[in-house]
Amino acid sequence: MKELLFDNAFFGIFISLIAFKIGKDIFNKFKWPILNPIFVALILIFIFMEVFNIPTSYYSKGGDILGFFIAPATVCLAIPLYKELGTLKKHYKVILIGALIGSITAILSVVLLGKLLGIQDIILLSFVPKSITTPIGIEVSKLLGGIPAITVFAIMVTGIAGNIFAPFMLKLFRIENAVAKGLGIGISSHAVGTSKAIEMGEVEGAMSALSIVIAGIITIFIAPLLLNLLK
C-alpha cells in the first residue's frame, strides 16, 4: 500500500507544493523571518516522511523533477538585471571587486573554520561551494572531490539563513546603498537570498541576481587555487 501511494513522481511534487503553500501561508500570517516558507516546508516534509517511514528514494522521484527547474529559474533572474542595466554599467568596478572579495571570504571562512573544528576533508570540500547557486555548486563540489548531496544541503541552509537574517544584518551594519545590499545578499546566499533582495527593490534584486552569476564563475576558478595554496 505504501509503495502504491508514495513510490511515484507525483508524491514528491505534490508534498513539496503543499508544504510550501502551508509555509507561505504561515509566513504571510506571522511575518517572522524565521518562518521562511522554504524552511517551514523542509521541516514539514521531514516530519511527514519520518512519521510514515517513507524512504527518501520515493520522494526523490518527484523532488528531482522539481530540482531540474532550479537552473531555468536562476536564469530568469536576468530579467531584473536587464531592467537595471544602467546601474550595472555605472558600478561595474565596485560590483566585480565586491564579488571577488565576497567569494574569497566565503571560501576561506569555510576552510579555516573547518580546519579549526577538525572536520574531515571530504566534508570540508563539500561545504566550500555553499554560497553559490545549486547547479554551479554541485559541479564545483565534484571538481573539488566533495559530496554533491552534502553540498546541496549546505547551499540550502546558507540560502535560507541569508533570506532570514539579511534584513537584520543590513540594519546592524547600517548598509543603506541598494547596490551594496543586493551584492551582499546575492554573494552570500545565492537565489534564495535573492528572493529577499527582490522584495527590497528592483536595484537590490538586480544586483543580487548579477552577483549569483559572478560569484559562481569566480568560485569555479579560485576555489581549487585557494585550496592548493592552503594545503
Rank of each mutant, 00 (worst) to 15 (best):
G62R: 06
G63S: 00
D64A: 15
G67I: 03
F68S: 13
F69L: 11
I70E: 10
A71R: 10
P72G: 12
C76E: 13
L77D: 03
L77Q: 04
A78E: 08
I79L: 15
I79C: 10
P80D: 08
K83C: 09
E84R: 05
E84T: 03
L85P: 10
L85I: 15
G86F: 07
L88K: 10
L88P: 10
K90Y: 09
K90T: 11
H91A: 15
Y92L: 14
Y92V: 15
L96I: 11
A99T: 12
A99L: 07
A99F: 09
L100Q: 12
L100Y: 14
S103D: 06
T105R: 12
L108Y: 06
L108G: 12
S109H: 08
S109F: 12
S109L: 13
S109D: 08
V111P: 09
L112Y: 07
L112M: 09
K115T: 14
K115Y: 15
K115A: 12
G118P: 03
G118K: 07
I119S: 03
I119Q: 05
I122T: 14
L124S: 05
L124V: 07
S126H: 01
F127E: 12
K130V: 15
S131F: 05
S131A: 07
I132M: 03
T133Q: 02
T133N: 02
T133H: 02
I136P: 01
I138P: 11
E139Q: 13
S141N: 07
S141L: 08
K142H: 09
L144S: 01
L144D: 00
G146E: 00
P148D: 11
A154T: 12
I155T: 14
V157Q: 11
T158K: 00
G159S: 05
I160K: 04
A161R: 12
N163R: 09
I164M: 03
F165V: 12
K171S: 06
L172N: 06
L172W: 08
F173V: 10
F173Y: 12
F173T: 07
F173P: 06
R174T: 11
R174N: 11
R174G: 07
I175Y: 06
E176F: 08
N177Q: 00
N177R: 01
N177G: 00
V179W: 04
A180L: 01
A180G: 03
K181W: 01
G182H: 01
I185S: 02
G186Y: 07
G186I: 05
I187Q: 09
S188Y: 07
S189Q: 09
H190W: 03
H190R: 03
G193P: 05
S195C: 12
